[in-house]
Design a protein around this nucleic acid. Structure first.
Lengths: 346, 346
DNA sequence: CTGAAAGCGCTAACAT
DNA sequence: ATGTTAGCGCTTTCAG
């Protein structure tokens, strides 16, 4: 099979006996060209199945029309939703996406950042890895004024926007709710991470305890990787505690569910013995029995907002330097896993 | 803030007083250049923080080092796993990924294909949308000999490889298992789609019935979009049936779980009243109670295999025209949701 | 082993 | 309204 020759504006020009400049202008609707010429050019382009050459264009314009995305992992419902939102917006504005997974490791994140830098992305959307503590690997982007938007896992920085929910408040509400349900010994299961999302949730947890004059005990904070199996692991620890806790606030639904299942197997009653609150409103929270009380974390929307902000900035419509943080609304959803006090029916 | 000037091989050349040709050669380890020169070039490149310009390179080589991926949706565990596998392999070989979501709609798939064609991807990995019936929108790729690998949802075509599991066999095993557990009236819940994965599963279901002399009844096939809520919808229909079924084989775990929850709410006992088998081995299958019997569908591995095949072909290591279909191993996993016959303990 | 130079396809300044 | 031309950064052929 013979490969079809790639059509260029030269081919169109010579077919129409006009100059390439005119073809180039016509193709991007430059009002300066004669309407008839324009029409002819478009027709010819269509017939010859011309497609514009991005590299040549990019080579001249020094833009790639590509956005880099760095996330921890794709295989969580939350992250997939975010990507989905990003993809949607990017698509609309004609931007491509290059996605890089850090697998929650700083080293891989650095590698990914370097690759995206060399790929000359126009901008970057980033959710930081568990163990990322500094932003040195993004210095090269700052130096070249390549805009950077953080979402979810962020570190504040003068040259970036952060898209967040109010994690302190959400965690405060969660913990407060457990206290109101009568819990006295509340465990918090979270990640071994200095990321804002985890420190803020811990802070909200502590705040609620303090307000109710419950002493904070660092043995009540269980650290793990927040996966499903880490939840089961945590359950083992919990079962050894004496006295056992009567409430658990987990920084992520998946882990909460793993923990609940393990405890249920050990004949712990939820919520009667131990009440549970998770985080994320992952679909699994409505599968586990009892359904998990959680915080709705708007992933898709977060992706859209992040992408919109970046692209607006890229198009010069907005300026990252003026805005610094965007807080999205989150929502506390009460389900059966935390209702120790049964509602009266009227 | 002053933008740093972009360093090119000209800068390196003039600094070192050599020609750009030598720099270019040195940079890609052409054995023809003097080792000392090579070293100097690398050192200078490092110092000046040079980064190679992909557009210029691509413009010359007419390659993009980019692979296009078209999937229905990112927000399913299976698809996310596939992408994860693809990303991993692509990354290893220095390929970028452009991901396009069809949202399971043919029209969007066509659009995505066009965009990727104009984006001049070197190759394509595709899982077709629910309602895609022909491959016309990929004609332009075939004409230009741009290789195409299908995975999961495929249509056989001389110029492509398909990566699959044996859906007929898997569905046969699932149905057979239900029959062995004593089920007489087995429902199959599936998608309104002509995609191989669904027709094959239906075929396997019928085959098992036939072998056991159970008449096929088309009213026992419930069609929906296989989402969580479609499962609940199906449950409504099932509750109206008289007699009710005693076994259900669902073409996807998510939908199975939605259906199980709805039936449980209606006080149906699983597996005693109705036994369930799903498909995919989604994590949720181990959260639902009773745990869901299902077919393990190796998503991550499928992504790896698909990407490897495409890249090998791109590198000339293998030839798509000779291979046509690659069948991956799947696995039937029996859990509580289908065990009507309790095992004797020894 | 190294250098000179053409050309990949396109845009934009300048000229007509 | 249209054409001419330089040049974006790189690879590669041909010459030395």
């Amino acid at each position: 099979m013979v490969k079809e020759k790639e059509i260029t504006i030269y081919d169109i020009a010579s077919k129409l006996n006009i100059s390439i400049a005119t073809v180039s202008r016509a193709l991007k609707d430059d009002p300066v060209v004669n309407k008839k010429t324009r029409k002819k050019v478009f027709q010819a382009a269509e017939e010859m199945s011309y497609r514009s050459n991005y590299f040549a264009k990019n080579l001249r314009s020094q833009k790639t029309n590509t956005i880099g995305v760095i996330v921890g992992t794709l295989t969580s419902n939350f992250q997939a939703s975010v990507i989905s939102g990003i993809e949607n917006v990017a698509n609309k504005y004609g931007y491509n996406l290059i996605i890089s997974q850090s697998s929650e490791q700083y080293a891989k994140e650095v590698e990914g950042a370097k690759a995206l830098f060399n790929g000359r992305v126009d901008g970057l959307l980033v959710s930081l890895a568990f163990d990322t503590k500094n932003l040195d690997h993004f210095e090269s982007f700052f130096k070249k004024d390549i805009p950077l938007v953080f979402f979810d896992r962020t570190i504040l920085h003068a040259k970036t926007i952060s898209i967040l929910i109010n994690n302190v408040e959400a965690a405060y509400n969660a913990t407060n709710h457990l206290i109101e349900q009568g819990c006295k010994r509340i465990i918090h299961i979270t990640a071994p991470s200095n990321q804002n999302v985890y420190t803020d949730r811990l802070r909200g947890y502590r705040q609620a305890l303090e307000e109710h004059k419950i002493a904070f005990n660092k043995n009540n904070v269980i650290i793990g990787n927040l996966g499903f199996s880490d939840g089961a692991e945590a359950a083992k620890q919990i079962l050894k505690m004496n006295p056992m806790p009567d409430g658990i606030f987990v920084a992520n639904d998946n882990c909460a569910v793993g923990c609940m299942l393990a405890l249920k197997k050990a004949s712990i009653k939820i919520p009667e013995d131990i009440a549970f609150v998770g985080f994320n409103n992952d679909p699994v929270s409505e599968v586990i029995e009892p359904n998990l009380t959680t915080i709705n974390y708007p992933g898709y929307e977060m992706g859209e907002v992040a992408a919109n902000n970046l692209i607006n900035h890229l198009n010069g419509t907005s300026n990252i330097e003026t805005t610094n943080t965007i807080i999205l609304r989150s929502e506390f959803i009460i389900r059966e896993s935390s209702k120790k006090i049964k509602q009266n029916k009227f």
